[in-house]
Design a protein around this nucleic acid. Structure first.
Lengths: 379, 379
DNA sequence: ACACTAAGTTTAGAAAATGAACAAATCAAC
DNA sequence: GTTGATTTGTTCATTTTCTAAACTTAGTGT
């Protein structure tokens, strides 16, 4: 239903998704079109149910009517293949989670497609609206995804190589489907729904068991030439350091991922099962805990500083699941960023910390579907 | 004369500049237009003298006529403010250098504009064609330049802050003028004239007294949020290492720039004035020379590896003025890249080495002018 | 010489934009 | 209140840009 949007219509949707509600006149200025053209485009999109009039702003002269996306004009399903059971959520066009369930994870694409298809009815059960207007499925996974957001080029976690997962799910479920790398999916959903809406250049660093990263450049997700842009986890931070499961040494992942921090704690004989535990130990003066947090924080900070130097993003968004950035770890990270960035730049790149819950990945996946619905893959 | 090109015409020029000569049918496919539309666009551009028919390719059916940019349809002047005297070159639309001279360098923008204007007649003297079709001036400088390629936000070397250099030169000379950071200018000219024409994502690392770097992403120069994308020289490579003039420690610049290499040699008591000298010493077994080249090479390699991990470019183009990459330095660089890149990726990112002469910067500057003539700043 | 093939052009007409005039909805001022 | 100023948004005739389909052109293969 959505494939036949004009290029201008798409541009408009993109603009609104970036800046929030706009009057027709503002839209016209933004896209460089005449008021006349804008009027027609807006009317069409309102008729389609994608836009609707919201606020009326009074000023001098005729008041302007703000148009915004109609959040209930389309619904999306997002699935994360990062955990077992795999979270599965239903979201609207604002990224609001409307329903949530889980499905069994599998390594067999066909079984996944089957599980998704079977899970849909119950996910949509209490939401007849959503059932009718379900416009896309998004899947987040750990691995490399191609430009078309259809094929998984390689996933070590899932043991895949060149798996056309999107096609398989699409064929089984009958719903438009797109897949994406986990960190990239989060970046897209932050651009669409989150705190980076209006920012054209930013990077997301997602801190969890592993470390993920993705870049938005000139308002678009930058996937890299082999889909590997943002593989910050395997930047060498401690040359000659500990061996990494990737085969080389001293990767950021071996020092600053939650998994690494926990392993280091265990090796030091600390009985810690979470970042908060270690932070607690450190705050009571435990030297080992302090050392570990220092090492991890400096490494992450250095990597982020290098990212800033390299790409000069307008925002670094650090998402983390566990613990908080209020403690020693966060302080060290910030310090390390400051000391490793060109002094002239220090403090010029906003660092935003965002604590996220277990829905991040599924929500990100839904964002991929929403992005394809709204804007499409090309400009 | 050139400001009123259609968006389609610009797209076409971009496509040809990327892929070389194309038949009308190929063009139509590339831009997603009908043959009919293409026919008209091509005719207009031929009438304007921008395109011309070159080769005829015989196959089955009617032979196709390849169209290419007419290299003599426009000429550009490029000036490098990196040296004194400042090189000044005249180039055609292929980047071919047609004439060359020098002008005195100054820190006063007005004096620069004056020198350029006064230098033009003699530069153009033997080329009446070029005089008539001079379509732009480009200026390369060390520092930060804003998005519009008109204002120098900051240049430590020139002691500038917010200098509207392009406007000053434009007003004095009457010629359309654009300025750009040195490394970024080289990247643009490599994209336009050089070895990265068909590549959408690549980074240029320019090795000279200092180290410069610039990224092309999705076919466009990526300037970064503050114009600082590519400041690889001040990535921290040796945490806690030697102090850098930027104020922090262990920057790549303090270890791998030609200046740093020479300084380290002097500190070690080597009587070397060029990279070749040090390479020679190393090849005869001089331990200090070997150590220096190892240290510099590993640092540069690590930085490039981090760049690859971070941005997954389709090509790294290393330009260097002095010496060669055949010796120890080059070997170490390559080795360090290999060992610090995800093993799966190793060798996947082509590294191209290009020895350049003293014209690089001026040629890059001319490329900026040519790029603005052909494609304009926006898409 | 004959069909066959593919490139490029022509034509009429659809699609998408513009510009200028106009209608609508408010504020401000008397 | 009525009037004027002001700005939004619409209408409509016109222009620009692109398309589809038929046609012309210039070759190859048999």
């Amino acid at each position: 239903m959505n494939a036949m949007l004009t290029s201008s219509q798409r541009q408009l949707l993109r603009a609104i998704s970036e800046s929030g509600p706009l009057s027709r006149t503002e839209m016209a200025q933004m896209l460089g079109l005449s008021k006349a053209a804008m009027s027609g485009i807006a009317r069409d999109l309102i008729d389609l149910g994608v836009l609707h009039e919201t606020e009326i702003v009074y000023g001098q002269g005729r008041p302007s009517v703000l148009l915004d996306l109609h959040p209930e004009c389309a619904f999306f399903v997002g699935i994360s293949l990062l955990e077992d059971p795999a979270p599965m959520i239903l979201s609207d066009l604002n990224g609001k989670i409307i329903a949530r369930q889980a499905m069994p994870l599998s390594r067999d694409p066909k079984v996944i497609a089957e599980a998704i298809t079977e899970g849909l009815p119950s996910l949509l059960e209490a939401h007849p609206d959503a059932k009718e207007k379900l416009s896309g499925i998004g899947v987040a996974l750990s691995g490399f995804v191609d430009e078309s957001q259809a094929n998984c080029v390689k996933s070590t976690l899932l043991g895949w190589q060149d798996v056309p997962l999107a096609k398989i799910i699409r064929e089984r479920s009958g719903i438009e489907t797109f897949i994406e790398n986990d960190a990239k999916a989060v970046a897209v959903s932050e651009k669409l729904f989150g705190s980076a809406r209006e920012i054209q250049n930013f990077s997301v660093v997602s801190l969890g068991d592993g470390i993920g990263c993705a870049h938005f450049i000139d308002g678009r997700l930058y996937r890299g030439n082999h889909g590997g842009a943002g593989e910050i986890a395997h930047c060498t931070i401690e040359p000659g350091g500990s061996p990494c499961r990737c085969g080389k040494r001293g990767c950021l992942d071996t020092v600053a991922s939650m998994k690494a921090i926990k392993e280091m704690s265990r090796a030091e004989g600390l009985e810690c099962t979470s970042l908060s535990d270690i932070e607690n130990e450190a705050s009571t003066g435990n030297a080992a805990a302090i050392r570990i947090l220092h090492r991890a924080g400096s490494a992450l900070g250095l990597a982020i500083a290098n990212l800033i130097q390299m790409n000069d993003p307008g925002l670094i968004l650090i998402t983390h699941v566990e613990g908080s950035f209020e403690g020693l770890f966060g302080t060290v990270v910030n310090q390390a960023i400051e000391t490793n960035v060109l002094p002239r730049y220090a403090g010029q790149t906003p660092i935003r910390i965002k604590r996220v819950d277990g829905d991040v990945w599924a929500r990100g996946a839904a964002g991929i579907a929403a992005h394809n619905f709204l804007i499409g893959s090309s400009y």
